[in-house]
Simulated assay, not measured.
Amino acid sequence: MAQAFAALSAVEVMAYGLLFFGGIYLVFGLATWTLTRHVLPALGIGRVLDPRALQPGQLRRELQQSGVSILIFGLGMIFPWGLLQLGWAQLAERTPGQVALEILALVIWNDVHFYINHRLLHTRPLRRFHLPHHRSVVTTPFSTYSFHPIEALMLGNVILLPMVVHDFSFWSLLSVPIFSLFFNCIGHANYDFFTRVSPMHWFAASRRHHLHHACYQGNYGFQFTFMDRLFRSVLPPDAAAAQIQQQSQARARRDAGSQAGGHAG
């Protein structure tokens, strides 16, 4: 497989990249949406984190922005392919155990890389490139790739540095966008899948990222908490409770007022 990938033309690499990223986005996004909107609530498993309604046109906006990100990620496959063509990186054959260790290392690196770039995107010079993603205050699985193009470029280069410092297996590198998107869909699902685990458990990532979108600052990590703990950016579990309750009550009063006005008419 490594030789086959290296032997592809530039156009083929970009075409396969577009199909790959578009395919996993739709599969994971639709699966997570179906699970959290229909299957799990019907089974009484888990709970919705933020009960507020989506913004008008939010899903359409998320899909449009995600389409641009998919274009960037797909065409961006030319860069790892280019490293191989230039001889700056090599793909190696590994045993299943070695592949597992490489994937573990890449999972940890992904969290470090995400945290660094995420914190940069919250600084004054770069925050305007992150605000399109934060327009989704109540998130959906389709918020996952809903980025400004600059943010997509920053987050999409995660495998380039590892490739030049170590000869990874093709399958190890292929796992990065798969587990990244999977965990990202979970994190943006606005659903608490494991209500009994502690807020710092890695199974509670959706809780932590829900708070990040609700509060904007804090909980900058990806799936794990070690970077947030190290840099003291962990949000308390109830950080958004008052805000959500206040807005939910205001909406209920507006709805009650509209119904009263309708009856009076």
Rank of each mutant, 00 (worst) to 15 (best):
54 L>I: 05
62 E>Q: 06
62 E>G: 00
62 E>M: 04
62 E>C: 05
65 Q>R: 14
67 G>Y: 07
71 L>T: 06
72 I>L: 11
74 G>H: 03
74 G>A: 07
75 L>N: 03
77 M>H: 08
78 I>D: 03
78 I>L: 11
80 P>D: 09
83 L>K: 01
89 A>P: 00
90 Q>F: 04
91 L>Q: 11
93 E>Y: 01
96 P>K: 06
97 G>H: 03
101 L>R: 08
103 I>Q: 07
104 L>Y: 01
106 L>P: 01
107 V>Q: 08
109 W>L: 10
110 N>L: 07
112 V>N: 01
114 F>L: 02
118 H>N: 10
119 R>W: 10
120 L>T: 01
122 H>D: 13
122 H>G: 09
125 P>S: 10
127 R>N: 08
127 R>A: 13
129 F>M: 14
129 F>E: 08
129 F>G: 09
130 H>Y: 06
131 L>I: 11
132 P>R: 03
135 R>I: 05
136 S>M: 09
136 S>V: 08
138 V>H: 00
139 T>I: 10
144 T>Q: 14
144 T>V: 15
144 T>L: 15
144 T>R: 08
145 Y>M: 15
148 H>S: 14
148 H>N: 15
149 P>H: 13
149 P>A: 15
151 E>F: 10
152 A>T: 15
152 A>Y: 09
154 M>F: 15
